[in-house]
């Protein structure tokens, strides 16, 4: 029996909360839960709530699957939860948040690499 997505973590109204990724999965197979947790809590501690999941390994259709519970994310951000960078990137790509600058940087790098490859091919 796994802990429920509603979470079992203890928190107070004033404890600083953060929406962050929590690495599940196993060796060589990353899988992340998007969770609301107390800022200082270790990743092994029970979370306050799970608000989504993220599978960083592309599936056979070349998709990285993300599930987000926007209703709860809205609630938690509205109640002062911070958002970690990776989650902010995901939210930006989902169109919930503004697109994160690092997403642009990554896109530039990828584009450069692709152009280099294409040039090599053409040469």
């Amino acid at each position: 029996m796994l802990p429920p997505a509603s979470g079992t973590g203890i928190y107070t109204s004033v404890s600083p909360k953060v929406i962050r990724l929590l690495r599940q999965g196993c060796t060589n197979r990353p899988f992340f839960h998007v969770v609301v947790a107390v800022n200082r809590a270790h990743q092994s501690r029970p979370v306050i709530e799970q608000v989504g999941s993220y599978d960083p390994m592309p599936n056979r259709h070349d998709e990285k699957l993300v599930a987000l519970n926007f209703e709860r994310i809205r609630f938690w951000i509205g109640n002062g939860a911070e958002v970690s960078k990776p989650v902010a990137q995901l939210l930006g790509l989902a169109g919930f948040y503004p697109v994160h600058p690092t997403s642009y940087l990554q896109a530039w790098k990828t584009r450069e690499k692709m152009e280099e490859k294409n040039e090599e091919k053409s040469n």
Binding site: R74, F75, I77, G78, N79, G80, A88, Y97, P98
Partner: peptide, 13 residues
């Protein structure tokens, strides 16, 4: 981000 957050705080806090 700040504006989105403020909006959400106003609406959901």
């Amino acid at each position: 981000e700040k504006s989105v957050k403020n909006f959400l705080v106003e609406k959901h806090n």
